Amino acid sequence: MVDRRIRQELASTKKEKPAPDQLQFGKEFTDHMFIMDYTPNEGWHDARIVPYQNISIDPSAMVFHYGQSVFEGLKAYLSPEGEAQLFRPDINLKRINNSNERMCIPKIDEEFALDAMKELVALEKDWIPEAEGTSLYIRPFIISTEPFLGVAPSHNYKFIVILSPVGAYYKEGINPVKIAVENKYVRAVTGGTGEAKTGGNYASSLKAQEEANKNGYAQVLWLDGVEKEYIEEVGSMNVFFKINGEIVTPELNGSILEGVTRSTAIRLLEHWNYPVSERRVSMQEVYQAHQDGQLEEAFGTGTAAVVSPIGQLSWGDQHMVINEGQTGEVAKALYDNVTGIQYGTVEDPFGWITKVNETSVVEQ
């Protein structure tokens, strides 16, 4: 049984909140954080909300040496009525447990974790910025903490949730980006950890991203790690193509992360009666569609940007300009509707919004 009590220790002094127009992603953090520990004898225990602070951890903690960790990312939004709300948090918590399974980390109680996140957001509600397009980013993560240099699953863990106010991703409207198709480096392979949200996947992507940035590209389009022929993700986002009226996205194959925004986009597109296919998509197919004038749109989906239109794809010596480098109608509709539901300005027909109750039930 999970001990459902959460003790609370309030910060004695409060931080100065940044101006809404000065917000940068992941630079500022709120006054409090949530922590819960795991040991084999007690399971997950000692749930607490405490002042944001450094954590003390042994230099031999296994997370530093073998990378046994998982994380998630979601946001809290302010509705027009001033209510704090979350967007599909149950899916994030289900996914963190899927990642836990792959990384040999004990699963968390998803219902209790949601209660803890809501409690923390309620406490920090005045940190949710009010300016258009801004939000409070929520980062739950789990690290292995056992002090041991043997290669094996850790016995001890910490589950932590921190919050960060973030600015609007698009300050001047959605702008399509230039993407380079990556032919040298590999992000993940089927049977590896690509379908888990774990730090190593992101570390392995940095070199390709760095080289793409130097050449004037915003990100890379990842191909499969075996044949280097089939499309997987774009940067750290899922990717979609509109080809001759059909919306196509790579099927989940064990190396692709199942994005919350990905599943949201698919559900909305089906709701709008677009033909949607989840299948293998080769770079050759996309190139041929462009040659035939049938590549109508391309875009990525993810928590930070929601939708990121692709204006140009570079594949070797081939430079494919998509939709004249402009944002397509599907990408724009998805962005407007998803963000509208998140902020409470568009009807939520799917029950995706979770309200944050401002009445604290936390034990003092």
Rank of each mutant, 00 (worst) to 15 (best):
R4M: 01
K15I: 10
E16C: 07
K17F: 00
K17R: 14
Q24G: 08
F29T: 13
M36D: 13
D37K: 12
T39W: 13
A47D: 14
A47L: 14
R48W: 05
V50I: 15
I57A: 09
M62T: 09
V63M: 14
F64S: 12
F64D: 08
G67P: 14
G73Y: 11
L74Q: 10
L74T: 14
A76I: 07
S79T: 04
E83D: 11
L93P: 03
R102S: 07
R102T: 14
M103A: 06
A113E: 11
K118L: 09
E130R: 13
A131G: 03
T134Q: 00
I138S: 08
I138A: 10
P140T: 15
P140E: 11
P153R: 07
Y157A: 07
I160H: 10
V161P: 11
I162C: 07
S164G: 05
K178V: 03
N183V: 12
Y185R: 11
G191P: 01
G192A: 14
E195V: 09
A196W: 06
N201F: 03
A203N: 12
A212D: 12
G216F: 03
Q219C: 03
D224Y: 02
E233M: 06
I247V: 15
N253S: 11
I256C: 05
W272L: 09
V286G: 02
Y287L: 03
Q291D: 01
Q291S: 00
D292H: 00
G293K: 01
E297N: 02
A298I: 02
V307A: 04
S308N: 11
D317H: 04
N323E: 06
G325M: 00
A331P: 10
D336F: 04
G340R: 01
I341K: 01
W352I: 06
K355A: 11
N357M: 05
S360L: 09
